[in-house]
């Protein structure tokens, strides 16, 4: 959903998101006519997930071109491995972002995410998008199709794959199980829902435009 360069300043919110969140962001921001009217959504390519050093630059390039058209800008990324560079870009454009270090963290919630890592440091996470596009983002993105021998280099210290699911989808769960097997990892499933994205539709006025915010209590019992 590209932003038209002919637009003039607007009271709409620009949401600039990670391509790996595109389905959830479309669902969230297009859930009713008022939100559709209020939000312009644009996503950057999902493959930036594998090259986090370029995220801040890409966000900056987009905002340099479009930020002047909006008074309200929300970037649907966490820090995502940018090591603070994204925050510097956001400060420049007076924009805000999702909390935390990674999408895994804002999806699961910081306490749950941290407890999973405390429990087992070698935890590799997938989301719905990453399960669905595992072949492109993980296998091709990490070069594992071309160089299968790299699998053990990348994953030798990982012990389990945790599928942090946004939807309860048996087909994706089956896929994730196979993917864990492909990577030589133990499989675990945690339904965490999409509530971590709610800040995208929280407006400064405090007025909620959502029919219903996505609210799922994340349950996690490490035992």
């Amino acid at each position: 959903m590209p932003v038209s360069s002919s637009q003039v300043a607007t009271d709409k919110r620009l949401v600039l998101g990670c391509g790996a969140l595109v389905y959830e962001l479309v669902e969230l921001t297009q859930q009713n006519a008022e939100l559709k009217q209020k939000i312009d959504l644009h996503c950057l390519p999902a493959h930036l997930h594998n090259t986090p050093q370029f995220i801040a630059r890409e966000v900056d390039l987009f905002l340099l071109e479009h930020a002047h058209k909006y008074q309200d800008i929300f970037v649907a990324y966490a820090d995502c491995g940018s090591a603070g560079d994204l925050d510097k870009v956001l400060a420049k454009h007076n924009a805000q972002r999702l909390p935390g270090a990674h999408c895994y963290e804002f999806f699961a919630g910081a306490p749950v995410y941290e407890s999973m890592l405390d429990e087992e440091l070698g935890s590799f996470f997938l989301t719905d998008y990453l399960v669905q596009f595992f072949e492109r983002i993980v296998m091709q993105g990490l070069g594992l199709n071309d160089y299968p021998e790299l699998r053990d280099m990348y994953f030798k210290h990982y012990t389990r794959l945790i599928y942090l699911a946004q939807t309860e989808n048996p087909e994706l769960q089956d896929l994730a199980k196979q993917q864990a097997k492909q990577l030589g990892l133990r499989y675990e499933y945690r339904f965490v829902g999409k509530q971590g994205l709610n800040p995208v539709i929280d407006f400064p006025s405090g007025k909620s435009l959502a029919n219903q915010k996505i609210a799922v209590e994340v349950q996690y019992d490490p035992t």
């Binding site: 090259t51 050093q53 071309d146 160089y147 280099m153």
Partner: peptide, 11 residues
Amino acid sequence: DGILFVPEVLK
């Protein structure tokens, strides 16, 4: 410089 990526570097 972003010309090579991790898989190539590992090779």
